[in-house]
Design a protein around this nucleic acid. Structure first.
Lengths: 164, 164
DNA sequence: AAACTATGTCAACATTGCTGACGTATATTA
DNA sequence: TAATATACGTCAGCAATGTTGACATAGTTT
């Protein structure tokens, strides 16, 4: 019975291990997202603005619909954020080339600056954690996080992430 | 120069690797937190309620101040959530033993049931990701996430997580 | 020409964070 | 013991960011 149980339930799948993995994700996310907040506050922006800046920065020319699919929020929520970014001169829109109903989104120079500024802080934090943990650990980190992504979009997301 | 650069900047610390690590965290967290929402909605609760349930469940007798330190929100925000949980019979308070000003928090049977119900869903998700990735990857995942926690509380958090 | 699609907008509302002010019970210190 | 500090609660108001629903406009597809 003990054999059966440990077969079905190796050490790293015990409930307390799972619980630890869940809490680590909570704490890491909690502290990871705190950095940008201070910078954003200076512009009267919040995390939602940063998420938009980030993904527009990483996918220049992304359409509104694509951005909505990534963020998983409603167009009304995004609209508020996007309007502020456009009004402030951080993002510009351009009529779609294939389909002129689409609005393709780009960062302006100012937008790129802000995005860079925040990215630098976050990347420094991740770089330190990566350095401390080592290349092998990083591979494991990526593997597990990828596994936490909903299976339907996992492949597409991994592709979009690695295409750069 | 290429040698110098690659010494200071091994492959897994390149900017696009860091960016991928950041986005993976975003996507994983996005999908990971979606599960509980449906269950919670049935009780008219949200994520904030779940976080309280979760940490009270894991630390029976936790004081309000300790819970505030974990969640990093104001007492007014927590109060709203805690009142709802107490009113609904999911959490009970008990005057502190050492210090009678403190309120120690416990889950009721009903609270334990709800917490278990949600935990089961989340743990299943994590267990699957762990199983797919393997024990070594899990170790790396934990190592990197731990490194993302603010250094000042990292040791204390790791201790509190492993004490169970 | 009709139907569908991509986007925007108006309005209302919920959740969850925040600040500031003030109260009460208990503990600690001068 | 009196003064001060602490743990917690509560009231009131506000901000950010999410939601639904309804409707408009331009452009695409059938």
């Amino acid at each position: 019975m003990s054999d059966l149980k440990s077969l079905a339930n190796p050490l790293f799948l015990r409930e307390d291990e799972l619980r630890q993995g869940i809490e680590l994700l909570f704490y890491a996310y909690r502290d990871f997202t705190r950095g940008p907040d201070e910078i954003l506050a200076r512009y009267n922006f919040g995390r939602a603005h940063h998420r938009a800046l980030h993904f527009i920065g990483g996918h220049p020319g992304i359409t509104v619909a694509e951005l909505l699919a990534i963020l998983r929020i409603t167009k009304q929520s995004l609209s508020r954020v996007l309007s502020a970014l456009i009004e402030g001169g951080f993002v510009r829109q351009q009529q779609g080339t294939r389909d002129r109903r689409q609005r393709q989104l780009f960062l302006t120079e100012q937008g790129k600056n802000l995005e860079r500024q925040i990215a630098t802080v976050q990347q420094a934090k991740v770089a330190e954690a990566y350095r401390e943990a080592g290349a092998e650990a990083v591979a494991g980190y990526r593997k597990v996080l990828a596994g936490l992504i909903d299976e339907q979009d996992r492949a597409a997301i991994l592709r979009s992430i690695q295409r750069r």
